[in-house]
Amino acid sequence: MSDAGVVRLLLFRVGRLTCAAEAETVREILPRLQATRIPGAPPVVAGLVNVRGTLVTVVEGWRALGQPEPPTGSDGGTTVLLEVGGGRRVLGFTVDEVVDLLTVDGGALERRQALPGIDPTLVRAVGRRAGHLFVVLDTDALLTPVMPS
């Protein structure tokens, strides 16, 4: 992400956090799909889902970001398909809800900084929307450790 220029961000909520991913890495937004557990995979992996015939590995957002588990029986949330590793791979990421699609000036984002309650290595920048802070996630840092290189 460059400091200058315009950046389009997809904002979503995971637990108490408002997060953002660069819109160009977002392949698709889907309702939560029934996932098949993958034995042996770390708990952060929700499992395998079927996206129109293609199998996609899904990462549980609240586990990855250290948020409390959403109450069972809530309507299940949303799966965001993200391109990682420069588009070589697509992974699903579950979120509670999608909040907004935002166009911001790159300069308005503050470079990575520590925020309480989130692992700083997962944060690329911090921005503000209607007075509230949101974190722009480093989706590669978030998702690649799950997958073998």
């Binding site: 098949t36 993958i38 995979a41 992996v45 293609t54 450790p145 073998p148």
Partner: peptide, 27 residues
Amino acid sequence: VKGFDAPQGTLPVFSGATIMGDGVPAL
């Protein structure tokens, strides 16, 4: 038979996955 991105630690006993009649994957 379809391939899938096996996450770290996946038990080495799967050769792929498939999509069942109800649309849900099975290993």
